[in-house]
Amino acid sequence: MELNLSAVLDSWRFLLSGLGVTLLLAAGVTVLSLFSGTLLALGRLYGPRWLSAVIVFYIDSMRAIPVLVVLVWVYFALPIATGLNLPPFWSALLSLSAHLAAYVAEVVRAGIQSVRPGQVRAGMALGMTRAQILRKIVLPQAVVRMLPAFGSLLSLAVKDTAIATVIAVPELMRRADAVAGQTYAPVEVFTTVMILYFIVIFPLTRGIDMIYRRISFLGRS
């Protein structure tokens, strides 16, 4: 088999701008899902009972529905059901974040609950309020303890963007599909795509693991 590298080289700008969209989408999903997932976890742990019931239901359903189904539903069904018509990129951002937030919520909850109750008692004994204890004692330690799990979530955030191709978000996968179709060089193009994803994600997870090994003592009570 002969490799047709020009198929890749001729359209590297096109592919790279796709990677740019992928990274932008992944960054957006990361920020949004971290923010909303943390709120979900706090609501579940400290909110009134009805709120935590609603949140548990939300988390369970998001974990039971494939992310592709959420994405397709937001893009094709949401406009008809509610009249809210989002462009592809925003549909992807919303659905991927909503999905990942459920996993973030579980990680945050586990992190918070893993902090020893004695730490809370130490804060109480100083006369701190519940909110102060959460903000200054529990959360900082929980964040450190969550780091390894966040590494996996971060890689999921990047990888999941690839399915946005089905609603024509011009991200890396979509672009690669187009190039492969025009050049009849799927081996070269998709191998390149694989390598690109790897180059982005591998240092992310490794880096977080390295940081964790350095600072894990900050969460060890």
Binding site: Q119, A125, G127, M128, G219
Partner: peptide
């Protein structure tokens, strides 16, 4: 209760220092 706790120091068996 918090006001009273502020006026009583407490030391625990397992220290419970804040690791961070």
């Amino acid at each position: 209760t918090r006001l009273i706790r502020q006026r009583m120091g407490m030391v625990f068996q397992n220290f419970e220092l804040f690791p961070h």
